[in-house]
Structure formats: C-alpha cells, structure tokens
C-alpha cells in the first residue's frame, strides 16, 4: 500500500523537473509487494520488494522465465501490476507515467526496430519523442552513432542490419534522451566477442555517471561490471545486495591455481598449504582451490601459496581469482531457495 504521505510526495514530485526529482530521490528504483499475474493463471512477478541504489550498476540475475523482463516492463509502465507498486526516482510507474519514462533509457532483448527507416531517421524520431530540440538532437545523434560504431551504416535501412548492429542501434536509442537510469535487458545476447567486450566496457563507462540495470542470465557479465545484484527465481527476489556481500555471506571467496609438474610435488604443495591453516582442495590433480576466511587477506594468502609452489619446483600456469564465485553463490542461492519449500 502507498501511504498518504508517499502519495503526496509522489504527486509533488510529478510537477518537478526531471533533474530535481532525480537529485532528490534516494533510490533509483523502489518496489513493494510488486506482483504480476497473467490471466489469473501465471505468476510472473511474485510479491517483489526491490531497492536499487542511485548510481549503482545493478545486475538482475535469474534463470529464463524468472520474471526479469516482466519486472522491467512493469517499471516502464508497459504492463500494469496486479498488485503492489513501483517507483522510479520516487515517481510512481504506470502506462501514462511520462515522467518516469523520461528518466529511463530502455534496451529490450533483441530490439524490434522499424526496418523501413535508416538509423538517423530512427534516432531523430526517438529524439523528438524525448522532447529534444533540433539543436541538441542532431549533434547527439551523430555522436551516439560514432560511439556505437554505426557511422558507416547510416545509409543502410535498419532491416539490413545484423543482430549485433541492431543491438548497438538499440543502445544508441536508449541513450538519445541522456536519461539518468539505463535499463538494459540482456544487452550482450547474440553479440560476437568483440561486440560483447565493447558493450561491457560501455556499461562500465556509463556506470560512472548513471544508474544502470542489466538483466541477464550470463554470470560472467554480472561479475565484470556490476556492483549490486538481485537474484530472481520463479518471480521472487531471493537476494538483493552488493556482490561483495553475497560472496562474503556464502563464504565462497576463493582463488584457483592451475599447476604443472609432478603429481607428488603438487600433492606436497596441497599438504603444506593445508598445514598453513588454509582451506584447500585439489581437483583433477593439477588444480588447487584455496578459500579465504574472514581474517585473511587475499595478498598475504596468495604470497604464502606462491612461495610454497616456488619451493616445490612446480610451475604455475594460471591464477583465477574468484572467477566462478558468483556462479557458485548464485547456484547455491537457487538450491537454498528450492529446498526451503513452503517457507519460501
């Protein structure tokens, strides 16, 4: 339920300029009891409470069908909630909440774009929809097309674009209005490695000045760019918080060492590492996992283990620091949630 004071505050903020509303709000996104049930049959979002800090790069993680896209569409007012409420920078969301959408740059998964237009025509239309005057619109469009690497394709019809080009144009489209909040739904879906790298770098860059929400099920992307995380399962938010908190909470901060040398030497390294009081396990006889506890720093543990490896004459091929930690934490959270049964 929205309280009276909340309603008054919301109605007051409706009349304020976007910049003022944005500056005043504590949370970029706030939802309470947000619920979406399709045709009285399918529960897509289930009593969701979510708070996204302003200025964060927030990863919305969950398996396919967890309700990520529905949540984003509820925030945009493309769908109406069955229950509960959502606010963006303090303004209530809804189908006619123009003020909310003015502050959001949305990139859908594999965006469906008007194929009969050229990129400049399309971005110009979107610029007009964002109330941008001609003097601002034109330079911004050319700057965006250069940023996303589509300057060479300005004469092509959008229907001739590849998936990657469509995504890049979708990225430019979401940035036309220079909104303070970016909501990107699976931005790396269907991209080749270089385009994926470009997109992740762009998100990191944009995250310095804007709040960014990335919905994805690619854990590696989340690990690289996000500082906050929300994990969804069957329409419910089963975890929200910082990635650091998640790793600490589940005690899975570890690093992995790939070794090469005699099996006996590697075994001796494992034994001596354990003798130092470190939690260690050896996998495939050549991969050593060392887990950190609360009172240990990563640098000191690593220095001691490296010294042991050197003393035993074992060659170090690679070090992976917490590469799969988020994946492990994520999978553990999903398992915990499923095992809770009725308590969920």
């Amino acid at each position: 339920m929205i309280s009276d004071s909340d309603s008054i505050r919301a109605s007051q903020t409706q009349g304020l300029p976007t910049d003022t509303v944005h500056a005043q709000a504590q949370w970029a996104i706030q939802t309470e009891h947000l619920t979406k049930i399709y045709a009285q049959r399918l529960i897509a979002v289930n009593d969701m409470a979510l708070e996204v800090p302003k200025g964060s790069v927030f990863g919305l993680l969950g398996p396919n069908g967890a309700g990520k896209t529905t949540t984003l569409r509820l925030l945009l007012g493309l769908q109406r909630p069955t229950g509960g409420w959502a606010r963006v920078f303090g303004i209530p969301c809804g189908p006619n909440a123009v003020g909310v959408r003015r502050m959001i740059g949305y990139l859908p998964t594999n965006p469906k774009l008007p194929g009969h237009l050229r990129p400049i025509e399309y971005l110009d239309l979107l610029g007009k929809l964002c109330h941008l005057p001609h003097a601002v619109r034109k330079p911004r469009i050319s700057s965006l097309l250069r940023t996303v690497g589509l300057l060479g394709a300005t004469n092509q019809l959008i229907r001739t674009f590849s998936t990657g080009m469509c995504t890049r144009l979708g990225i430019a489209a979401s940035l036309v209005g220079d909104p303070p909040l970016l909501i990107w739904d699976e931005p790396t879906a269907g991209l080749d490695p270089s385009a994926r790298r470009f997109t992740l770098d762009l998100i990191s860059e944009l995250g310095k000045t804007k709040t960014v929400i990335i919905a994805t099920h690619i854990l590696n992307d989340i690990d690289q760019i996000c500082d906050h995380l929300g994990i969804m399962q069957e329409g419910r938010m089963i975890y929200t918080g910082s990635i650091k908190d998640l790793k600490q909470r589940l005690g899975l901060d570890e690093f992995c060492l790939e070794l090469d040398g005699s099996l006996a030497a590697i075994e001796r390294v494992t034994q001596e590492t354990m003798a130092l009081g470190l939690q260690t396990r050896c996998q495939d006889a050549r991969t050593l996992y060392v887990r950190l506890t609360d009172d240990q720093t990563r640098a000191s543990v690593l220095a001691r283990v490296l010294a042991l490896i050197e003393s035993q004459g074992v060659r170090l091929d690679a070090i992976h620091s917490s590469q799969n930690t988020t994946e492990n934490a994520y999978l553990q959270l999903l398992q915990e949630d499923q095992s809770h049964g009725f308590d969920r």
């Binding site: 123009v98 003020g99 959408r101 959001i104 949305y106 965006p111 774009l113 008007p114 209005g177």
Partner: peptide, 12 residues
C-alpha cells in the same frame, strides 16, 4: 515493435 520503439519513451 510498439513497446520497444515508442511506448517505452516519454509518450502517453
């Protein structure tokens, strides 16, 4: 197309 292109922008 409508949702992705136009109605997710500041339009009633």
């Amino acid at each position: 197309t409508l949702a992705d292109g136009i109605l997710c922008r500041p339009v009633t």
